[in-house]
């Protein structure tokens, strides 16, 4: 990423984009600006739509997925709908999957699920936001389908030998979300307290939900 220009440094938490006219623009940065301006000139995109789409994406985070998981833990009727048709169940909570379908895969005492996209980086971004860099890395994509137990161990997750590991390879049309097992000792917790235990990584399946102290 060294040739994309360092003009954004320090703007990570700032929602004002830096001006386009900056020295040291990389080739692909220039290409992005040119293509965007041409699409606006042609009336294919309207000014402001890109900004609105960036803001919509920035507003998505693993909290969306955590809300879905916590609801499934406390509401068995919702859980049944979620496992039957994840797309529709999420839509009923106001989370639209867009052009993709969602399949929710449930962890049990016999089966543990892990997600990957070996070919690229497909990810349930409507529920979790953009994927972490490691999810897109050669190392994760290559190895998690070959030696998932070893990979999980690198994430600090040790599973009993008699638990079956299922690795789900996402596609452009079909995204997965792991429904982890509700941790023991959480019987008296509210839905929002439960949601706080559900992390991005446990909805990818590389870790388990936190156990309350």
């Amino acid at each position: 990423m060294s040739d994309t220009g360092g003009h954004d440094a320090g703007h990570d938490h700032d929602h004002t984009p830096p001006p386009d006219s900056s020295e040291g623009l990389g080739h692909y940065n220039v290409m992005e600006i040119a293509v965007r301006e041409l699409l606006i000139d042609k009336g294919i995109l309207e000014p402001g739509q890109i900004r609105a789409a960036v803001e919509a994406m920035d507003s998505r985070s693993p909290e969306g997925g955590a809300k879905v998981v916590a609801k499934a833990w406390v509401d068995s009727e919702f859980k049944a709908r979620l496992l039957d048709d994840g797309t529709a169940a999420c839509a009923s909570l106001g989370i639209e999957m867009g052009p993709t379908r969602l399949a929710v895969v449930e962890d049990t005492s016999e089966v543990h699920n892990v997600l990957v996209c070996t070919l690229c980086s497909c990810y349930p971004r409507m529920l979790l936001g953009l994927p972490p860099d490691w999810y897109k890395s050669r190392e994760y994509r290559s190895r998690v389908v070959r030696e998932p137990r070893t990979v999980l161990r690198e994430f600090g997750t040790e599973l009993p030998d008699d638990v079956t590991l299922r690795v789900h390879d996402s596609t452009a049309e079909l995204r997965y979300l792991v429904l982890p097992m509700r941790p023991t000792g959480t019987e008296g917790m509210s839905e929002s307290e439960l949601a706080a235990l559900v992390t991005r990584d446990c909805m990818i399946g590389v870790t388990l939900p936190g156990v309350p102290a």
């Binding site: 990957v116 070996t118 890395s137 050669r138 190392e139 290559s142 190895r143 070959r146 690198e154 994430f155």
Partner: peptide, 12 residues
């Protein structure tokens, strides 16, 4: 198409 290939440790 890198699924199943050998690769090094994951930078988490």
């Amino acid at each position: 198409d890198m699924g199943g290939l050998e690769a090094g440790p994951i930078d988490r």
